[in-house]
Computed example of a mutant assay.
Amino acid sequence: MLCKALGGPEQLVVEEVPGLTAGAGEVLIEVHAAAVNFPDLLITQGKYQFKPPLPFSPGGEVAGVVRAVGSGVTAVKPGDRVIGSAVWGGYAEELVVDASRVTLVPEGVDLATASAFLTVYGTSYHALVDRAALRPGETLAVLGAAGGVGLAAVQLGKALGARVIACASADDKLAVCREHGADEVVNYAREDLKERLKQLTGGEGVDVIYDPVGGAYAEAALRGIAWKGRLLVVGFASGEIPRIPLNLTLLKGCQIVGVFWGAFTAREPERYREGLTELLQWLAAGRIRPVVSETFPLERAADALRAIEARTVKGKVVLVTSHHG
């Protein structure tokens, strides 16, 4: 699937292109499944931090089988089932990535599920563990809780021993959050977010807010934060970057903490690998499980991106190629 002009999902076209080869330190992956993430939508619109030269394939997260490795690669071999991560290039039947961006898939985890794992759980783990230092018994409020990163944050919050309040804009989305462990739910389309967060915490406020949404809800949530709370800035799925009155941080003795998982993986590779090892153990043990609500054939990538744009997706949607059995 090639993006030959910026302007969103409508611009994607299917084309046959020459096959790829693995250079030194690289791995060639036969792609079976590619997860669809919010940045993929932004990159097709020219609104993402990275602007690849045209034409390019969107998609930064795939699972498949190693077909070839370049010189110097010892961690994986042809035939291994792997997850591969890139910034773009994933909506295709082949992807070449640096060997450092390849992770073995645990036994018993299918490739469609594996493709939906790395970005959302990696982001949420980095946010909750590295950035917020979430402790057992603390209260975590997750905004946009039925989305991909949202559900990952709900599951990880529970795995880390927190009391989780899932916040979303519709009751059917909140029902999915309850299925995945949320202790309490708030429908912020018809309830006052600040007041509900206060009520659910006996007036104390929530310890950690996980916000991939931005817009008007960020400030409302911050007004419902506890003393020494942490507001995690994960993204702006609402399309609006909020302007926060800084006096709120003073009054609450709280922190506003940025979460940029992609930059973290590049800047702190050892810590990234440590966290990923723990996440893979939890995945293999069934403590966390990616929620793939729908799969689309690769050729229908535009439909999958439109579902993300319309905010109708619960959990993740995944593209599958002709290789996927």
Rank of each mutant, 00 (worst) to 15 (best):
120 V>Q: 08
219 E>I: 12
27 V>L: 10
157 G>L: 05
246 L>Q: 14
159 A>T: 15
148 G>M: 05
311 R>S: 11
116 A>N: 03
226 A>I: 07
278 E>P: 09
68 A>C: 06
33 A>V: 01
78 P>C: 10
277 T>R: 15
69 V>A: 04
206 V>T: 08
49 Q>D: 13
28 L>N: 02
287 R>Q: 15
121 Y>F: 14
44 T>D: 04
213 V>W: 03
239 G>S: 10
3 C>P: 08
130 D>P: 07
117 F>A: 01
124 S>K: 04
315 G>D: 03
311 R>G: 04
63 A>G: 06
298 L>N: 00
38 F>A: 01
266 A>N: 14
253 G>Y: 12
83 I>P: 01
239 G>T: 08
120 V>C: 13
277 T>S: 15
287 R>L: 14
324 H>S: 09
58 P>W: 00
240 E>K: 14
71 S>C: 03
120 V>W: 04
258 G>C: 07
88 W>T: 02
128 L>W: 01
243 R>M: 12
291 V>I: 13
183 D>H: 12
204 E>F: 13
242 P>Q: 06
98 D>F: 04
201 T>M: 08
92 A>Q: 00
239 G>M: 08
183 D>G: 06
7 G>D: 15
199 Q>I: 06
248 L>E: 05
70 G>A: 07
251 L>D: 14
302 A>V: 13
77 K>V: 11
242 P>I: 05
22 A>N: 09
154 V>L: 04
264 F>P: 11
127 A>Y: 02
154 V>M: 03
14 V>C: 12
31 V>D: 00
